[in-house]
Design a protein around this nucleic acid. Structure first.
Length: 457
DNA sequence: CTAGCCTTGACG
DNA sequence: CGTCAAGGCTAG
């Protein structure tokens, strides 16, 4: 796949092979810089200036001068020879509106040099453009993301830091910081939108009675009917729930959550990238995931990705509105139909959302547990140690069962458990259908991270 | 916000 | 492997 992130002017504009010599163009720039009447521009020559500013030793040969302020330059930045500070300045300000956002308080012809460069951003940015700095060489949001994704991908491949999500400060999270009473999180009906189960005609058949119970909180009063979770189980559950709430369940800040940003399958895939990142964050915080070898981490994640996105779509489905909740409001499920042209897929997916939602409601502890179960699945592609995976699956299936028994009583847990697992196996079928969307995408227009996790390369 | 320093990927 | 030119981080 071609690297799309760097096909910019930097490749078209001929750069000078020889770093020792100043090209005519560079000379021109330097002359311009020197043409200001302030001779202090050039006080920082080879020696005598280190007392006040650090400089990379061993780079004495870099005697270039910033075309904007005359400070020492290391080379080209955004198509002109500039110092580090003007580079950073340009990056920060190149897209600001020079009329309303940066204004010269004087006559618009301030002298910009090492000393005065901070005084007038307006004239400084003007000079940046004058010496030929090009703002289209600043990576835009998508390009930046692509670049980050590449870095992450490489890191993951090198294995120092298996699957890093942001590349930015991946410090181990302090769970205690988030620790809340587990009862808070796991309350089965932390509902703001408890719906009438009437809409759930198709698949909820077996368990209607149960869900009536759940909805109406008609559970046994005898404490003996409930399992007492062991301390390790309780802690584990709490950890999972907290992780989930702070990653997958945290609505990411996505400014594209408008129906018009879902035109086709490419958009659909690309707009899921944030969710994938959250998912990666989530699994990385699971001790059991980290204990897997790196190959299996990646295999497990890849195998679970589609199902996880679907599960997430259930968690954020709003039944009354037939829409998904996003940070920017609700987005109708019809975008799925419109972006792909697959009516049946839309109906299947929404049907699934409705039935599973009516079972799980807004119990995010359950979503978290199911998400974990999705990851530890022994039949994923390319897994090396399937037995280990199966053991982990056992562990969390048990945890799920115990959790249900502790929350919903022995009387109801069994049925609930079966219903949930049934829906989980259905997820596989749905996810296979969804894979057909991927046949529509143009890999050249897909974010690298998504290419990677969806095996689109 | 500024500016220095650092990390990266591409390229020769 | 060194250089270049992106972006990120952060003390001030």
């Amino acid at each position: 796949m071609a690297d799309s992130s760097h096909i910019k002017e930097s490749e078209v504009v001929p750069l000078h092979e020889d770093s020792e010599e100043l090209s005519p163009a560079t000379l021109h720039l330097v002359n311009m810089a020197g043409s200001s009447d302030d001779t202090e521009n050039f006080v920082f020559s080879e020696e005598g200036d280190d007392s006040m500013r650090k400089r990379p030793k061993s780079k004495m040969k870099h005697s270039k001068t910033c075309g904007v302020c005359g400070d020492r330059a290391l080379g080209y930045n955004f198509n002109a020879v500039t110092c580090e500070s003007c580079k950073a300045f340009f990056r920060r300000n190149a897209f600001k509106d020079t009329v309303s956002q940066i204004k010269c308080l004087f006559k618009g012809n301030c002298v910009i040099d090492l000393r005065t460069r901070r005084f007038c951003p307006a004239c400084r940015i003007k000079k940046c453009f004058e010496i030929g700095m090009k703002r289209d060489m600043i990576l835009d949001d998508g390009e930046r993301k692509a670049r980050m994704a590449k870095v992450l991908h490489n890191r993951a491949k090198k294995g120092q830091n298996p699957i890093t999500t942001t590349g930015i400060k991946e410090e181990p999270i302090d769970h205690d910081e988030f620790r809340v009473e587990s009862s808070n999180i796991s309350s089965p009906s932390c509902s703001e939108s408890v719906q009438s189960p009437s809409a759930t005609s198709s698949t909820a058949n077996c368990s209607d009675k149960l869900f009536q119970q759940i909805l109406q909180d008609r559970f046994p009063t005898d404490p003996g009917m409930y399992r007492q979770l062991t301390e390790p189980d309780r802690l584990l559950l709490n950890d999972i729930a907290v992780c989930y709430e702070t990653t997958v369940a945290a609505l990411p800040d996505m400014d594209f959550c408008q129906p018009e940003n879902y035109q086709n399958a490419n958009d659909l895939v690309n707009n899921s990238e944030m969710c994938v990142r959250q998912l990666i964050k989530f699994v990385k915080r699971l001790d059991d995931f980290r204990s897997l070898c790196q190959e299996d981490q990646i295999a497990a994640l890849k195998s679970a990705i589609m199902k996880s996105l679907l599960l997430r779509s259930v968690a954020f489905y709003i039944m009354e509105k037939d829409a998904w909740l996003t940070q920017k409001g609700e987005i109708p499920t019809s975008i799925l139909r419109e972006a792909t042209g697959f009516n049946f897929l839309h109906d299947l997916h929404v049907g699934y959302c409705r039935t599973l939602k009516s079972i799980i409601l807004n119990n995010f502890t359950l979503y978290a547990l199911l998400q974990v179960l999705m990851i530890f699945h022994p039949d994923g592609n390319n897994l090396l140690d399937r037995e280990l995976m199966s053991n982990l699956q056992d562990k969390y299936i048990n945890l799920l069962k115990h959790y249900l028994e502790s929350e919903y009583s022995f009387e109801f847990a069994q049925e609930y458990f079966v219903a949930i697992l049934g829906k989980m196996s259905e997820l596989k079928t749905l996810s296979d259908h969804h894979s057909r969307i991927l046949l529509q995408v143009n890999p050249n227009q897909i974010e690298p991270l998504m290419l990677e996790v969806l095996n689109l390369k």
